[in-house]
């Protein structure tokens, strides 16, 4: 099973029925898989903060959704993310870890071309636990993250790296 299909299976096992999405090159491998899956409804948004708020609305109404956006978009959604944490929103955040393949993990954190990448510190600042999904063996973390969000009442993030080697713009 390809990674995208395996991730969708983990989400569905956790009861997720909606994916609130803004297209991201790092998670390009998810695009067609999500669209093809008859048990998942994809809600496209124009800005990543919308995804957080729509997930909140789905949750308030008793539905289960996860968001799928790029790390750059999460930076842009800081206020919405802050609100989700305050809300105690049990949200699964799937975040495309753009540029991860070029990063080096050091004691100071993830470095990209000599500069510290802010993805993980950004999530840490909000107290959001995050897990790296960088291989097919990491896919079970998706279900674990969904359950952790449910049990703790907090957003939990999954940092997804590319599974298809997609090059942005191609």
């Amino acid at each position: 099973m390809e990674r995208g299909e395996a991730i969708c299976r983990e989400l569905k096992k956790a009861g997720i029925r909606y994916i609130v999405w803004l297209a991201d090159s790092e998670t390009h491998f998810m695009h067609d898989v999500m669209d093809r899956d008859p048990d998942l409804k994809v809600i496209k948004v124009c800005r990543e903060g919308e995804a957080v708020a729509i997930c909140a609305g789905l949750y308030l109404g008793g539905a289960k959704g996860a968001l799928l956006v790029e790390n750059q978009g999460i930076f842009d959604s800081g206020n919405a993310v802050k609100w989700a944490v305050t809300f105690k929103l049990p949200m699964t955040m799937m975040i495309g870890y753009l540029m991860h393949r070029g990063m080096v993990r050091t004691p100071e954190g993830m470095m990209l071309r000599g500069a510290k990448d802010p993805t993980e510190p950004f999530l840490d600042a909000f107290g959001i636990t995050h897990y790296l999904v960088d291989s097919d063996e990491d896919v079970p973390k998706v279900g674990q993250a969904c359950r952790e969000a449910q049990q703790t009442g907090k957003p939990v993030a999954l940092l997804l790296t590319s599974a298809d080697g997609y090059v942005p713009g191609s």
């Binding site: 809600i43 948004v45 919308e50 708020a53 909140a56 789905l58 949750y59 539905a63 919405a80």
Partner: peptide
């Protein structure tokens, strides 16, 4: 984000 929350609620309910 009020409208966005409303969209999620309307879809769920």
């Amino acid at each position: 984000y009020a409208c966005s929350v409303g969209i999620g609620l309307a879809l769920a309910q």
